[in-house]
């Protein structure tokens, strides 16, 4: 545990002393819950259609695959045509692309970003590294299987997949969402203990609360 995260007494500028417990005060300790779909099937279908047609990607590149996402914003590929946009904050994003290899150090940030996103949220594993480690199969600090740690909706295989493959991946993800199968957030909430156990097995300096939205 880092010193800045430990419970301590702080003296304010006006001389009043108060106690600060960063893990309790700055983060939420509540575990995620399974969120039910809308009551009516028609309404849920309508929402799912809107979710599919409005994919907001979290602008967080975890590995070398992030470089394949940049051309999507440019005139040649222009993913905006398909309702795909980039958001700089996890609060507003609903699609997290794990772009390429995920090191243990980055996993910590990825978990925190993922948990700050709002239900429903989707994860795409980009590149072979997220499936079986790819060319990092014998690396000591790279994760081999992404879906032990985060619920993955779709993999785009390749090293690296071309931007065209990503566009096709978005179309496939849209079909998954429209069919009502993009329930990764609920799956994460349901098997929360299992995911946390896996995450803690690889992250040895776990210095954050179990759930930090």
């Amino acid at each position: 545990m880092k010193a800045e995260l430990e419970k301590r007494i702080v003296k304010g500028p006006d001389g009043i002393e108060f106690e600060v417990d960063p893990l309790q005060d700055y983060y939420c300790q509540e575990a995620p819950t399974v969120m039910p779909a809308a009551y009516s099937k028609i309404v849920e279908g309508f929402f799912n259609w809107a979710r599919a047609e409005s994919l907001w990607i979290l602008g967080f590149g975890t590995g070398c695959g992030a470089i394949e996402m940049r051309p999507l914003m440019t005139p040649r590929f222009d993913a905006y045509r398909y309702g795909v946009q980039w958001r700089p904050t996890p609060r507003q994003a609903n699609l997290f692309i794990i772009s390429g290899y995920l090191s243990v150090k980055t996993l910590k940030r990825a978990i925190r970003s993922y948990e700050q996103m709002q239900n429903p949220k989707y994860v795409i594993g980009l590149g072979s590294c997220t499936i079986n480690g790819g060319m990092y199969w014998d690396s000591y600090n790279t994760l081999k299987r992404l879906d032990y740690y985060l619920p993955v909706d779709l993999y785009i295989a390749g090293c690296m997949p071309r931007p065209e493959a990503l566009l096709q991946g978005f179309e496939d993800l849209k079909e998954i969402i429209r069919a009502g199968k993009g329930e990764g957030a609920n799956q994460y909430a349901q098997y929360f203990d299992w995911y946390k156990m896996n995450q803690k097995q690889v992250i040895h300096d776990w210095d954050m609360p179990d759930y930090n939205w």
Partner: peptide
């Protein structure tokens, strides 16, 4: 697109 974004944001389950 703006209509769809609006519907999606109103339709998010958690906040």
């Amino acid at each position: 697109q703006n209509y769809i974004d609006l519907v999606k944001n109103y339709g998010l389950r958690s906040s």
